[in-house]
Design a protein around this nucleic acid. Structure first.
Lengths: 255, 255
DNA sequence: TGAATAGTGTCTATAAGACAATATCCC
DNA sequence: GGGATATTGTCTTATAGACACTATTCA
């Protein structure tokens, strides 16, 4: 038994030494990150104007090639770090896009990720060298049906998206709509302390429709996901709301 | 304007002609298919015993390299067709696995798909040349927490899984558990006509817990997703149940 | 004081769970 | 008829939606 096991090991080592990865054609593999924030009832995503071919002048998501020594999650985190400087951001794999002609250069398959940040992070990304915008996403479909989304700049201009990035962003919105009702992801889009109204606004922006205020409050307070801080918002011109914080995970460390 | 547009086109053409895809290292890209069926309260998946290195003797999912001229969906459908002969099977992208060392040969990223077939398809796959089993999936975690699953042969033996395929199958179960309550996927696991009890059994097997019978019936009948055929099952040793059929999509054509 | 939104309490409608009663098959 | 499960009907309980009422801030 021992001998057989050892010999099998040797066989495998020999096999691996001879293995030639170039025997099969390999597509290029990239990651793209749909970086999402919600502000004033609008979903926004970070897009950058392409300065080179192909799709010159169109707007694209931050992305890059997957390196041999990093996993897909690591590649996505690296891309996000390189383009924004941010770390410890909520980041999750979304979907892999592999249409044959999605990139005119060569066969490129991209593993799309989505990331969520609060609107307070608005400023930092804008003073990058590259022309970068938090573009508003206009979603022309209901519910979780899916499809592409339109991209608008702050002044209402339509920003044409490169490659299949309109599809990727559509998938991101679809995923958010699907997860929001039962997963604690809305908190990622808010600062550490927030009012229930702010959280409801996030939900409404993502879902694309209003939600019942009473039921929303009741459900959330009963969920145990949030806890009151005892502090209230200030300077709002009406009765100030209690500030809550997300009561799960290690988000205490955030700031 | 016209000239500028034309010149930009020429620039792009020149760029594309010079583009060298080998400038960045490219991982190998495969698809793997978790082919799922449910029978007698058990979730099963099709696994094949590996006849070559690496992971010789372990059990793996049907899979193959993505070819340059096919999309990811097409690759998955082709793999499924090659290994089982089946077409028009429910097939959906699951998740992409890209741990650096997941395959000892070289860097291999795999786009996992899951496919659903009814238990009536049991026989055809077993008379394949390769050693193939509909292995039972044993899920050691609750709800949608996720994790790996164990694989058992019909006689209760544990089948060791190759690569990260235990993880892929775990993700498939997790996805099914997440989608089942609101997506019409249970029907894919049943023959064209089925009883409500059979559908409930499917749900219980996937979810890993019993469901309330009364509520299940009411919800389904009210959903409009199914319609009665007027026919009843026969030879069951008790009052026969009405046979229903899925009342949406083009599933009429199935058989 | 008035405008505006937060927060509370209560009623109603709807869906889920429990369970009894009856129906219909095979043996 | 007896065993077994399907199907129907009713009652109870939990949750969502609606809405009135009070609270608290700023202008």
């Amino acid at each position: 038994m021992e001998r057989r096991g050892t010999s099998r090991k040797r066989d495998e080592a020999a096999f691996l030494a001879e293995y030639d990865a170039s025997r099969y054609p390999r597509p290029s593999l990239t990651v793209d990150v749909a970086l999402i924030q919600v502000e004033q009832g609008r979903i926004r995503s970070l897009v950058r104007k392409r300065g080179g071919h192909p799709e010159l002048g169109k707007w694209g998501l931050p992305g890059g090639f997957v390196r041999p020594d990093e996993s897909l999650d690591e590649a996505a985190a690296r891309v996000l770090r390189e383009k924004t400087g941010w770390m410890r951001v909520f980041l999750e794999q979304l979907y892999t896009f592999g249409r044959v002609d999605r990139d005119p250069r060569t066969r490129v398959v991209t593993v799309a990720y989505y990331a969520l940040v609060d609107a307070g992070r608005l400023i930092k990304a804008e003073d990058s060298a590259m022309q970068t915008e938090w573009a508003e996403l206009v979603v022309p479909w209901d519910g979780e049906r899916g499809g592409t989304v339109d991209c608008r700049s702050a002044d209402g201009h339509r920003l044409p998206l490169a490659f299949d990035h309109a599809e990727i962003l559509g998938m991101a919105v679809r995923r958010l709509r699907g997860k929001l009702p039962y997963a604690p992801i809305g908190f990622e889009l808010l600062p550490r302390r927030f009012t229930l109204r702010a959280l409801q606004d996030i939900h409404e922006a993502i879902l694309g429709h209003t939600v019942n205020k009473d039921a929303f409050r009741r459900r959330l307070l009963a969920s145990g996901l949030i806890s009151a801080t005892g502090v209230r918002e200030t300077g709002v011109g009406h009765r100030p709301a209690e500030l809550y914080r997300f009561a799960r995970g290690d988000r205490e460390t955030k700031s």
